[in-house]
Design a protein around this nucleic acid. Sequence first.
DNA 1: TATGAATGAGCTTTCATTCAT
DNA 2: CATGAATGAAAGCTCATTCAT
Lengths: 216, 216, 216, 216
Amino acid sequence: MTVEIETPSEPRSRDADRSQQAILLASRDEFAEHGLGGARMDRIAERAGVNKRLIYYYFGSKDALFRAVLEHSYAGIRQAEQQLHLTDLNPVESIRRLVEFTWAYYIDHPEFITLLNSANLHQARHLGKSERVLEMNSPLIQTLREVLERGRAEGQFRGGVDPMQLYISIAGLAYFYLSNNHTLSAIFGRDLMSPKARNERLSHMTDVILGYVLTS
Amino acid sequence: MTVEIETPSEPRSRDADRSQQAILLASRDEFAEHGLGGARMDRIAERAGVNKRLIYYYFGSKDALFRAVLEHSYAGIRQAEQQLHLTDLNPVESIRRLVEFTWAYYIDHPEFITLLNSANLHQARHLGKSERVLEMNSPLIQTLREVLERGRAEGQFRGGVDPMQLYISIAGLAYFYLSNNHTLSAIFGRDLMSPKARNERLSHMTDVILGYVLTS
Amino acid sequence: MTVEIETPSEPRSRDADRSQQAILLASRDEFAEHGLGGARMDRIAERAGVNKRLIYYYFGSKDALFRAVLEHSYAGIRQAEQQLHLTDLNPVESIRRLVEFTWAYYIDHPEFITLLNSANLHQARHLGKSERVLEMNSPLIQTLREVLERGRAEGQFRGGVDPMQLYISIAGLAYFYLSNNHTLSAIFGRDLMSPKARNERLSHMTDVILGYVLTS
Amino acid sequence: MTVEIETPSEPRSRDADRSQQAILLASRDEFAEHGLGGARMDRIAERAGVNKRLIYYYFGSKDALFRAVLEHSYAGIRQAEQQLHLTDLNPVESIRRLVEFTWAYYIDHPEFITLLNSANLHQARHLGKSERVLEMNSPLIQTLREVLERGRAEGQFRGGVDPMQLYISIAGLAYFYLSNNHTLSAIFGRDLMSPKARNERLSHMTDVILGYVLTS
DNA sequence: TATGAATGAGCTTTCATTCAT
DNA sequence: CATGAATGAAAGCTCATTCAT
């Protein structure tokens, strides 16, 4: 999941960029697997194939590195969301696609969930150092609002739906299932990650969300 | 290292019980605040007001202690769920009460969410050491199944609803909102934990779930 | 130069005291030889024959350890000064004894000079964390004041001598010679630490100080 | 690594000279503030506004840089001393001027004291790598010897005064006061660096030295 | 002449855990 | 039942120094 955000223009040593990217990807995986507390700088260096010192040279500290990884991940999902083009579809298909996208994105980017968990664990204590995250996905909310209004205008959707609440709900339906799949699989004695189970979950999620927004 | 939380049968020293309980509560808070990796045995000892060595005497290791805390937490919610008496209500009220209960429980026990996160983070790597968790809340699923069937029989509910999926969905709607409330509050520029916001969320959740299960 | 300051009364593990003392003496030597920046915790642990971790267990940090060493050293010279009994002698002998004592103490405790240097180097930047040092040697100043007054009353000493200035001067005459003896020996092409050279310096110092305080 | 401080004979790049000077001044300040052990090459580079690699290009190593700084500082005081022209004055005024000069120089060049301290700390272990320092201030000693002899011939000064001892004493009287001013100010509860306190010290120093050399 | 990238070695400090009583 | 003393291993981080250009 390499996200090239900005085209580098200045003639900088290619190795510098490559090293930074390597560190970023390696630490994303390490943080995802072990959490912020459990991640090891040594392992990140090894994974990235660079000297440990170089991580500090570029990112300063473990915390700062974690923040960089978070921002990188947020940028990734924000960018993916921007390619959804929800307004090209009719309202029902639009909602359906958003549910499917959310589900697929979490499945394809399992590290995103763990990173979010870690972020929330630590934000609870020392809040919001990374202000850059904030401008995250207001655009999608705006689009969703338009979709809901159009569906309402066409008589398909119920009124009074808060797009933010809906967005959070869609995310929550996917997130909890995936984030806790180990515990849940154990509790319910089913493999919740089998292809069949995944399809059932997506189907259920779609039903829940459409059942909510659709009238009659 | 077995921890007897419920009434001990043999006449054990009151101090012993008190120490164990103190350790359990202290470590629950510490794990909730810092995660498994970030929790510190020293701090747990300090919080519990006991000598660090005593923790090892009773619980054996940090991992074992974490497992004990998890089991304790699971036992807590299981016990609370058992007092719901869903079958005393009509199907619609029953579902409504389950949603309300889940919401309220997560709000009252914020450590539960963090512990779940930590558990899943680590289970992802070394699976299921604590087999005792498994028998967790099948009973509630069974009750929910009966509620759904009754609603279906009375023509109020749609058919084909998997009680496990529904249970996970209810949990997910509450969990994601609360777990990520810092990030979400920042992104959307609203305080998602104000009394008003909480009520709105509960209202929305209920609408979503009822919108899904209800026919017509 | 072991200074037993306070008789331990409580029945504490002997090893604890011994370990702390060993750490204190080892770090005093290490700090004296290498300065605060150049001292190595590993070497201190080795010198003290204890585990490195134990140093942190007892002293908390390198800085705190340095402060403890300083206080220990100050206590040492203060205690030695208190055994001078200057008031038992006539004024001239009293001054002579103070000069001799200062000289001998610095020679016998070469670490004291280096520690003072290090302390001042660092105090220059983050001032006075160790407030306990403050009550150091006012008592000697008071004694010196009495000696000067008596000498004045007996017509031997000049008036208007500030005991603090005199105390600093006596110290300075010894300190600079010893502190810079390597450089000075090189510059002047003499071994300034030979027994003969030492005697000459003490003799000179005594002449300077008596030449100043004596009338006629 | 020879550093030409005085006018370079061959036409060297102005930038090169400027860089070397900048490094020299920056490292002098850094060494003075933090000592040899505490000084940081990174900070020196930053202070000097040059690339870190350039320091190595010009000076070879941290130790060599420190030696260059020391030599630079010694050269500075030696040069200042040569402009004293002590022989132009009568013996008493000559001594008085030397005391005043020493005091003023230390006050104006506080880094000199710290550098001397660091030098002595490290020379104590690996002696005398910089032989160039040695020719330092024999000339002044020679001048001082002449002054003392003249004073003796004129009957004002006592005989048998070793000019080296006197020189060291004058330096020591100023040095100890200034080097330990933080500690001393704290101990005695006075601000030893106030203008008034400084004047008193100089006055005292002059009295001590003249009290010693003058007859009757 | 000058520099950004990179590193091996070693630093202070932390941690879960055990020993001895 | 309880504890203060002690530790091996490893963590995050720093440092003087070198490489490549």
